[in-house]
């Protein structure tokens, strides 16, 4: 039976998710995600034309804070959980493709 989502798509999604998965894992996910998606498509039995999507259960809006400064953590606390840091900055392997930023 053809799967809802094939291995190439799973690989693409893994890449978007920044998950380095083995080919066995990709295959396993292809199967599992396919059956979950198949189940999820049960939603298509429902006619939702003209139904407003509900992103939020709360019917409130406009929650603002005033423009008043609060204390920041400071450099030491900010870096305290960093896997690699130099006392001032977070350290990552050299970023060569600056244009990857938005």
């Amino acid at each position: 039976m053809a799967q809802k989502i094939d291995i190439d798509q799973v690989r693409k999604v893994a890449n978007l998710s920044r998950l380095d998965l083995s080919s066995e894992q990709l295959t396993e996910f292809a199967g599992q995600l396919s059956s979950i998606l198949e189940y999820v498509e049960k939603m298509n039995e429902l006619d939702t034309d003209g139904v407003e999507p509900l992103a939020h259960c709360l019917e409130v809006s406009n929650c603002f804070r005033e423009d008043i400064a609060k204390e920041s953590l400071g450099t030491d606390k900010t870096l305290s959980n960093a896997p690699e840091q130099d006392g001032q900055f977070f350290i990552v392997p050299k970023i060569l493709d600056e244009s990857n930023a938005s």
Partner: peptide, 26 residues
């Protein structure tokens, strides 16, 4: 994470995520 990424990815958003929000409304 994979499932959610797929549901939001380009080409699938309306079919999965938006549809789910409408079902949520119902």
């Amino acid at each position: 994470i994979m499932l959610g990424t797929y549901a939001l990815s380009s080409g699938y958003y309306d079919a999965y995520y938006l549809k789910a929000l409408k079902v949520r409304s119902l």
